[in-house]
Simulated assay, not measured.
Amino acid sequence: METEHPSPRYTRIDAWEPREILDAMIEGQFAAVAAVRAARPAIEAAALAVVQRLARGGRIVYVGAGTSGRLAVQDGAELTPTFSWPPERLLLLMAGGDDALLKAVEGAEDEAGKGAELMRRHEIGENDVVIAVAASGTTPFTLACLREAGRRGALTIGVANNRDAPLLTEAEHALFLDSGSEAIAGSTRMKAGTAQRVALLMLSSLVMILLGRVYEGLMVDVQASNKKLARRSERILARLTGRATEEIDDALRRAKGSVKLAYLLLEGHGLGEAQAALDAARGHLRRAVEALAGGPAAIPAKPSDSGRAG
């Protein structure tokens, strides 16, 4: 496996000057991003498939072990505060459970039976999306999750850094990240980890944009769970409408914190009319705006293509 293979280039890295070591590791990060760029067509295809499942009410399920699992959990955990993704439609499954997020749990990644059992316990089904991440592409726990999810009809996405690994060959959508060997052989928290982090970020962000949770480049589905995010909601509306703080605060109060609904209120629409437009557009603000203006989005899109107009 390339991720485990020592590179002759780094054989004497411990004898190099500190600046040389840092330069080499920085170059590795650029290589990791280049690996994600090469996987762009696969990421795009996977995102479009994800949108179709989620439009039917499915869940996003992240699974992994060790570093890969922590990166997967990190990506998933950010979906609710950033995009208001419903917590009940998100599962973050880590080999070894929550304890493994902070420390290594010996043998957890080898528990294939546990992985399959989790898929059954959570009743993973055909509307769900399972994103399985493993640098090696062979981790028993992660592979078992993917296999059982596939048997149960879920959309499966495999993310791995070794070509033709089982996680890739058995997934419906394979994201191969060709990051190569590490400066510290086998330390996949380095290049491989960066490539995984970027790929997951690209995939989830594209999905959320396609689902209409971004408007004019702004996080209009932001969940104002603290003062900083409440101020962000105000700034978003100020940027979109140019209205005064008092008007914005009143609209947010009437909209119970919903930036999308507050925006439509500030644009002069009644509360009932605005809510109905958002409901008909399945939460897509741009479609709701066009529908209220009598434009092309007046007729809601079918579920199968509901994510294609951000």
Rank of each mutant, 00 (worst) to 15 (best):
L203V: 14
S306Y: 01
D128H: 05
L118Q: 09
G28N: 06
Y10A: 00
S225L: 05
H269K: 05
L218C: 07
P87T: 15
L206A: 10
A244F: 04
R287W: 04
R231G: 15
K227P: 08
A288I: 07
S225E: 12
A108M: 04
G307W: 05
I13D: 06
L278I: 06
G69C: 04
I13T: 03
A183R: 01
R37S: 14
G307E: 06
A32H: 03
A281Q: 08
T139H: 15
N161T: 08
G212C: 05
L206S: 14
W85E: 04
V159S: 04
R89M: 07
S233G: 10
L211S: 11
P6H: 02
D99S: 12
D249G: 12
T169P: 12
R189T: 10
P166E: 14
M190A: 01
A174C: 06
A65K: 04
A15Y: 11
R239K: 14
L292R: 05
W16F: 04
I13V: 08
Y263H: 10
E20D: 15
E4A: 00
M25N: 06
I157Q: 02
L229P: 00
E182H: 07
G158T: 13
R235E: 15
E170S: 02
E78G: 00
V259Y: 05
A262G: 09
I131P: 02
T138R: 06
I299W: 10
K256W: 14
V63D: 02
E2H: 01
L93C: 04
A116G: 09
G180C: 10
E2D: 13
A224M: 07
Q74W: 02
D110W: 07
L218P: 01
E117Y: 08
G57H: 07
